[in-house]
């Protein structure tokens, strides 16, 4: 016997799933930010081997599809005898992906600080660490805010891919509902609306920040 789904049932289930999309996005963004910061410092350090290693790390994650990265984390770890839940694999995969992109975005921001700032602070006898902490990073941070918020949109949308390894977030729930209700157009329309509701405020906010910091400079 068939269970009848009302539109409200669909919406209620999707809202419930959206919480997981949001949670995964937040975790990936926060952890990815922390890992990304570590990679940034290695990337801009004067240590040649560290530079090369982090450059390779960034290129690998930027040059392969997120889906492949998730497959490798999910299946690779189980192959190595470590049993990972889809939840853990999704969080780990997205964290690595986010860290690589954020490190590269932030490196661009550090590069955007004019050379004269390095020279002036060097002339005042500041050490590399002191230059970074007091002169370069505070300025890079201002430049970084808008593109960082902008990238968070990519993270939210990236979580959709984790449905394929079986993590039950918005997209996965959408597929299951579509199969059960035979109304894929309505269901996926609502799923898309859900992503839009999460992403649009973020990109609006990023645009506003961008304008604000452009005027301020």
């Amino acid at each position: 016997m068939l269970v009848q789904f009302t539109t409200w049932d669909i919406v209620r289930n999707l809202l419930d799933a959206a919480k997981w999309t949001l949670a995964l996005s937040l975790i990936a963004f926060v952890l990815g930010g922390l890992v990304g910061l570590a990679i940034l410092f290695a990337r801009i350090s004067k240590h040649r081997a560290l530079q090369a290693a982090t450059k390779a790390y960034i290129e690998v994650f930027q040059g392969t599809p997120l889906l492949m990265q998730l497959f490798i984390v999910f299946f690779g770890l189980s192959l190595a005898g470590i049993d990972v839940s889809p939840w853990l694999a999704a969080a780990a995969g997205l964290t690595l992906f986010t860290s690589a992109y954020l490190a590269e975005i932030w490196r661009g921001c550090v590069d955007a600080v004019p050379k004269g700032q390095w020279e002036a602070s060097a002339t005042l006898a500041l050490s590399y660490t002191q230059q970074m902490r007091h002169v370069i990073l505070p300025q890079a941070l201002r430049i970084a805010i808008a593109p960082t918020v902008g990238f968070s949109v990519q993270v939210v949308k990236g979580t959709a891919v984790t449905s394929i390894i079986g993590f039950t977030e918005l997209t996965k729930t959408g597929s299951m509902l579509a199969n059960a209700t035979f109304e894929p157009f309505v269901v996926f329309g609502l799923v898309a609306a859900g992503y839009f509701a999460l992403c649009y405020p973020l990109s609006l906010y990023a645009k506003r920040l961008e304008r604000k910091f452009h005027v301020a400079r």
Binding site: G116, Q117, A120, T123, L124, L126, Q130, V135, Q139, R217
Partner: peptide, 30 residues
């Protein structure tokens, strides 16, 4: 560098610090 000060064509003041903080930075930090 502690014995040699330098002034540049493009000023190169630290834009995120006030005039006073610009002057205070090196004495406090270095």
């Amino acid at each position: 560098r502690q014995k040699v000060g330098m002034v540049f064509q493009q000023f190169n003041l630290f834009p995120h610090l006030t005039a006073g903080q610009n002057v205070m930075l090196a004495p406090t930090v270095v």
